[in-house]
């Protein structure tokens, strides 16, 4: 029995060596094309036949998409920067601290050496751990296509579980975190065991202006809605306040308001009620931690 005509799940494998070739391959592949970064999500999807892959475009060779660049106005994170690299970046900049802390509890050490930042975002899981902490840092993403590219707010990337606004062949090239004012960020995350996706996740950031009042407040959640979610209701209560005015009572009120934005579901991991309750607890704790950080910063 040497040849068969049986159909078996196979895909075409392409390995472009530069960005232009990659987006050209992406355009040529159309809807069946998928970029292969760390492959840690894609491989499972393929094995479980969740979404057909006709063309796999291996972008791991695009070295220009790797690494973290910091200049006075922004932090720029290449799409192919791995979770392990984020984990090791804490000392580079205070804004990277909270990201590094979260990267360190994601996946397993082996997976973190493969998994990329862009993969985590483009996979668009409601539980993607990097999304809420990047959203609260005001992250923007840049993309490339065969006829150009665009920039957008990270929070506008997600449309539904596993779905983004990216068009066929559109490649995320880097993420930028704009730097302004005195900012601190924290997060809280509940998972079942040391290796688990989040049952609930809350991240927040507070930015102080020259006068020491809150000029920007951001709260974002994971695992409590079909997409990573910005919780605007809580933020309003914090704007314009001084550190002294950010009392535990106010933080509790803001956390409760923020939790009201959550739209969780029951699933086999846990219940909606548990998610709604804990996202409030986590937000309150993250806010308290953030205020504490800012207060310490003020002393220096």
């Amino acid at each position: 029995m040497s040849t068969t005509t049986t159909e078996i799940a196979r895909f075409t494998y392409v390995r472009p060596t530069d960005l232009a070739a990659a987006v050209a391959a992406g355009a040529a592949a159309g809807p069946g094309g998928r970029y292969w970064a760390g492959g840690t999500d894609l491989m499972l999807e393929w094995q479980r036949k969740q979404r057909p892959i006709e063309t796999s475009i291996d972008i791991t060779g695009l070295t220009e998409l790797r690494g973290i660049l910091i200049d006075p106005s922004e932090i720029r994170i290449g799409a192919l920067t791995t979770l392990a690299e984020i984990e090791r970046s804490a000392a580079l900049h205070p804004d990277l601290e909270s990201l590094a802390a979260i990267a360190a509890v994601m996946c397993t050490p082996q997976t973190r050496t493969l998994a990329t930042v862009a993969g985590n975002l483009c996979n668009a899981s409601p539980a993607a751990d990097l999304a809420p902490p990047l959203i609260v840092l005001g992250a923007r993403i840049a993309t490339a296509t065969s006829d150009g590219g665009r920039e957008l707010e990270l929070e506008d990337l997600f449309t539904a579980p596993k779905q983004t606004v990216l068009t066929d062949g559109e490649l995320l090239t880097h993420i930028t975190i704009p730097l302004s004012g005195q900012r601190a960020a924290s997060y809280g995350r509940i998972a079942r065991t040391v290796v688990d996706i989040a049952l609930t996740l809350s991240a927040c950031s507070l930015t102080l202006d020259q006068q020491g009042t809150v000029s920007a407040a951001r709260i974002a959640f994971g695992s409590v809605a079909p997409t990573p979610l910005r919780a605007l209701s809580g933020e309003q209560l914090l704007l314009g306040k001084t550190l002294a005015e950010l009392t535990p009572a106010l933080l509790a009120e803001a956390a409760a308001a923020a939790a009201g934005d959550a739209n969780p579901i029951d699933d086999i991991r846990t219940s909606a009620a548990y998610r709604r309750h804990t996202v409030r607890v986590l937000t309150q704790r993250a806010l308290a931690k953030t205020v504490a950080r800012l207060s310490r910063g003020g002393d220096q």
Partner: peptide, 12 residues
């Protein structure tokens, strides 16, 4: 599970 702990304690 964390959820059962909170349920048993009457928190949720």
């Amino acid at each position: 599970t964390p959820e059962r702990v909170l349920t048993a304690m009457g928190v949720i």
